[in-house]
Structure formats: structure tokens, C-alpha cells
Design a protein around this nucleic acid. Structure first.
Lengths: 317, 317
DNA sequence: CTGTTAGCGCCTTCAA
DNA sequence: TTGAAGGCGCTAACAG
């Protein structure tokens, strides 16, 4: 035991000289950097900020710093990100991009860096996986629409190349199938952006049998869809019900507030962080549920007026 | 000069062994970390993601990594942020929080860490300042509204404690004064959040002489205001014109699209980064302009109907 | 339980 | 031009 007086004096000196241990020296000798990497596609996409924040919060709480990097959906940037992570000797990397590059993964794996992925990849030695149950929320959404009386239900998907977008689309088709109302012509491709949702909805509105409800692959798409509906002189949810996906912060503040499927970014972040710092001994697969949250963009179909509405020119769009 | 063959073999070996220099060792000996700190209030606030992205982009381009931290508007967290930055021996810190804590600043300054602030603080030795010309855009906005024929123009401010919010409010009052239409009763306090904008607008709508146009201290406030207007059964811009501030990404997608004053986060980010890595030799003050961007939330006042509208009960809100 | 020492991986200096 | 050596600040292992 050290003399209490001495202890005081040491702390006083620390205070006095504003002494801070040098993490670089510490890392050098210990081999541990106390840094976690977080790679996202684009922090500007409203899906990510909460994820980043959540990740930061739990990492910080556990004594880690976070190196955030955006790939900007660009695999060259991704390579740079990985390199920087490696140079900084991160103790784990969360790759939350939905895209991935096997070569880079191999590089990380070769360094024994723990990794966690969102949706993609197969769990392994130091490789965890967050698997989102998209189907759950989508089933809830379809069930909700069917219960309201909708039969012509459409889907605006994400970009065809994105695996998690495929999963959502397939879940949608499967859910409709259960009610015997599936129809592939009512699936149109969007791009997970507002502009894509707008364009997709215009195509849907031009259909001979216009859908009475549309589910979007993400909220941005749904917002674009709402714009298209309004531009066509129609109204949500009177003429068309719309359901989003993700429940981004903004969904609460659209007009009308968007009924959507919540995918908790906080939960994603927490699980990703836990997967890396290994509190969850041995667990390699982390399921995340999704659930419908009801707001005001869905209502029963307005069938009475349908005939009149069809006669209306669609040229406004 | 080294033998070309040798050079080849060395590079081959680097590739073969996947050699990466250890930044920690490098930092230890050189004293340079190649890390820049970026402290923001809350990355979840839509103002910040673009700022973070821009900062990251230019820092990365210059060979720096970025340590991002959120203070969550909490000065304890701020202290932790500063400490972590210091431990990692950052070569500069951008403090983009609009709040600041003199003690912490002194701590940074004592370490000779270059700093750059947004709005607050006074430039000095290693202390740069980004000064936003809020008045410019606000003047443009007021001018625009007056040109449309508005006279009862109100303002929903930010939180009273925030210096940059005061600046905006004062600029507004001054601009109105030039036209002889200033009236302090038409300034109500918001909180830079949607809920505050909503509440503030409800108060404004209850005024005997209801304003025909309202300028918001930021876009989130403006969005809340739009909701309040709609809830009261009125319409933007027919009954009330609304102008936001910041031009967050979302402003383009509100209904109607929001006329607002643009404050470029990219420019902020670039200047902050330059201020730190010292490309701009000796410059300590970095002005940033703001400009009105016209969209669809402003229109001439609907004076003819005003009488009738006034008679309408406000109870809906 | 305290004090000493070697060495983490790199860069810089100085000698050969 | 090349090679060897010292030390950055810290931790871990070991001796006293």
C-alpha cells in the first residue's frame, strides 16, 4: 500500500503538470490501441447518424475511441478506410455498408481483426454478423394493409444490386403470397433515395390498375413517393396508403407522419459494438427485429371514388 | 541511389508480408499523430452530418485521420472529448458546437493544440475562428418578404442561451428596423427543434395581429412551424410564408419545399480543416457567407382573405 | 511491495 | 550511400 500522502502528491502533480498518458506509447508496448473502426457508406444518409452516435456512445463507455469512415459507396475509398484502420491497429471494425469487398475482408481477417457485418457475409472465427429480420416488419406491414382492406399493394424496392434490398423485396412478395394477392408487376425498382421513390411512384400511378397501397424499401423512398402522390393531385392516405421502412427520425415529421417499419439503429450499434469487444462470449450472430410503427400515412382504400380517380389525367406528374 | 532491383524486392516483400507501418510507433517518435479532432454537439442533428463528411473528406485527402466526438450538449461529455483528443495527441481540434467551455479551451491551448471555433471565441495564436455572416442571409430573407408585400413578419428564435441564435435574432430585428416594421412582440423563442417551432408557431397564430410571414432560426424550427400552420387548418405559403435557416438536406423535401437561408456545411468543414492544417498561412478568421435560396414556402400575403381567416377559430391547433 | 530494466516499432542522428 | 545506435513514453517482467 502506498502512503496516502504520497498518493495525494502524485495526483496533485498530475493535475499541476496536466499529465496525460500517451496513448501511442501505450499502444506500442501493449499492442492494444483502444480504437474501434466504424465504416459506413455515407454519413449523410439519414440512416447512419444514429448508428454512428449509438456506436460511439457504447464504445466510449467501454473506453474505446472510434475511427469513423465513409466509403461514399466507393470501393476505392473502402480500401483506403481499411488500410487506415489497419495502420491504426484498430481492435475491431464494424462494417455497416451493406456492400463488401472480399479481398479487403480477407486483409482484415489476416490481421486477426475482429469484424462485424450488417446483413452480409457468413459468421466465422473473428467474424460476427448482425442479421436483421426484415421479413418480420414487412409481414406486419402487409398484414396491416390487408386488414385495412387493401388488395392492390405495390412495393418500391431498393437498388437491384443491394442484397438487403433483395431480402426486403422477397419478404414482401412472400407476405403477399400468403394472402394470394402477389403480383410482380406491382414491384418497381427504386434507389433508396427520394428521387427514385418519386420516379417509381409515378410509374405506379400510371398503371391501369393503380395500387391502393405501396410499401417502400426505405423511408427516403417513401418520402419521394408521397411527393409524387401529391404532385398527381392525390392525397395520402386517402387515395393511396404508404408505408416506409427504417423509421428514420424524419418519418415522424412528414405530412402526414409516415407509417413505417422500425429498424433500431441504436440496437444495431449496440450489438455491433458488443460483437467486437466480445462481451457476448462466442456469440457470432446477432438478430435484430423490425416492427411496424403506425402513424398516419395508411388508411382503408377509398374504393368508392376509384372509378372517378382513374378517369383523372395523370399528366400532372 | 538504391539499386532498382532492390527496390522491387522491397516492395514485393511489403506486398508479400502485408507490411503496414505502425502509426503508433511513428507517432511516438515523431510526436505527430496525423489525427485531427472534430467535436460536434450531436451528430443526430441534421446540421452536422454534412459537416462531418466534409471535414473527413478534406482531412483524409491531406493524410489525416479524424476522431469524431459528440458532446450531446453536455459539458461533462465535452470534457471527456477534450481529454481523449489530448491523449491521442491530435494535431488540431475543430470545435463546432456553438457552446464552449473556457477551462477546456485553456487546456487545449496549454498543449499548443491548434483549434478552430464556430462563431464563438476570439482568434489568437493557435486559435482560428469561423465567423458566419448570419446577417447577410437574413437580410436577403427579410428583403424578399418585404418585396412580396409582407409587413407583419415574425421570427422564431433559437434557445436564448445560444450566442449564434442571438446573432440571428438581432440581425432579424435590425433588418426589419430598416423598413420601419420591427416589433419585438413578433419574436418568440424556440429551441432549434421541431417541437419548439411547433409551439412557437401556435403562439404566433394566436396573436391578435397574426403575422403573414415568419422567419425561423433554423430549418428544424421551420418544419415544426409548418406543421403548426397545417394543424390550424391554414396553408403555407397561401396564409403564411415561412423561411428557414441552414438549408439542411431535408428542406428541399418538405411540403411545400422550404425557402431558406443556406449555410454551407461543406464550406464550414473545408475552412475548419484548412485553419487547422495551416495551409492558410497566418489567417485566423474565416468568414462564411449565407444566402437565401428560394423555394416554395413564400408567397405574397393573402390580405383579401385575412379578415375571414381571422374569424376562424384557432382551436384546431 | 517497490524499484529497476528491457524493449515495443519507428525515425533521426552520427559514424563508417 | 549505407549501417548502427539511441531514444520517443510507456508497460511488463523481474529482482530486491
Amino acid at each position: 500500500m502506498v502512503e496516502p500522502g504520497t498518493r495525494e502528491r502524485v495526483f496533485a502533480a498530475i493535475e499541476e503538470l496536466k499529465y496525460y498518458p500517451d496513448t501511442h506509447a501505450r499502444s506500442l508496448v501493449s499492442g492494444r490501441s483502444r480504437i474501434l473502426g466504424l465504416i459506413v457508406s455515407d454519413i449523410t444518409n439519414p440512416f447512419f447518424p444514429e448508428l454512428v452516435k449509438g456506436f460511439e456512445d457504447v464504445a466510449t463507455a467501454r473506453g474505446y475511441d472510434v475511427l469513423v469512415s465513409s466509403t461514399n459507396y466507393n470501393s476505392e475509398r473502402m480500401a483506403l478506410c481499411v488500410r487506415r484502420m489497419l495502420e491504426r491497429k484498430v481492435e475491431g471494425v464494424a462494417i455497416m455498408t451493406s456492400e463488401m469487398d472480399d479481398k479487403l475482408i480477407a486483409q482484415l481477417a489476416g490481421r486477426n481483426v475482429p469484424m462485424v457485418f450488417l446483413d452480409v457475409g457468413t459468421p466465422g472465427e473473428r467474424l460476427s454478423n448482425i442479421v436483421v429480420d426484415y421479413a418480420m416488419g414487412i409481414n406486419e406491414a402487409v398484414e396491416h394493409l390487408v386488414a385495412l382492406g387493401h388488395e392492390r399493394i405495390a412495393f418500391v424496392s431498393g437498388p437491384a444490386g443491394l442484397q438487403s434490398a433483395q431480402v426486403r423485396r422477397d419478404a414482401f412478395l412472400k407476405a403477399l403470397h400468403r394472402y394470394g394477392i402477389g403480383d410482380r408487376r406491382r414491384v418497381v425498382e427504386g434507389d433508396h433515395k427520394v428521387s427514385g421513390g418519386l420516379a417509381a411512384m409515378e410509374r405506379l400511378l400510371a398503371l391501369a390498375e393503380r395500387p391502393t397501397a405501396v410499401l417502400a424499401s426505405n423511408d427516403l423512398t417513401a418520402i419521394g413517393m408521397m411527393r409524387a402522390v401529391r404532385r398527381a393531385g392525390l392525397s395520402v392516405p386517402r387515395d393511396i396508403s404508404i408505408v416506409g421502412f427504417d423509421d428514420i427520425w424524419l418519418a415522424e415529421f412528414t405530412e402526414p407522419p409516415l407509417t413505417t417499419v422500425r429498424l433500431s439503429r441504436l440496437e444495431l450499434a449496440e450489438k455491433a459494438c458488443c460483437a467486437l469487444v466480445g462481451t457476448s462470449a462466442g456469440q457470432r450472430v446477432f438478430p435484430v427485429e423490425t416492427h411496424l410503427v403506425l402513424r398516419e400515412s395508411t388508411a382503408p382504400p377509398h374504393t368508392v371514388e376509384a372509378g372517378r380517380e382513374f378517369a383523372r389525367p395523370q399528366a400532372f406528374s
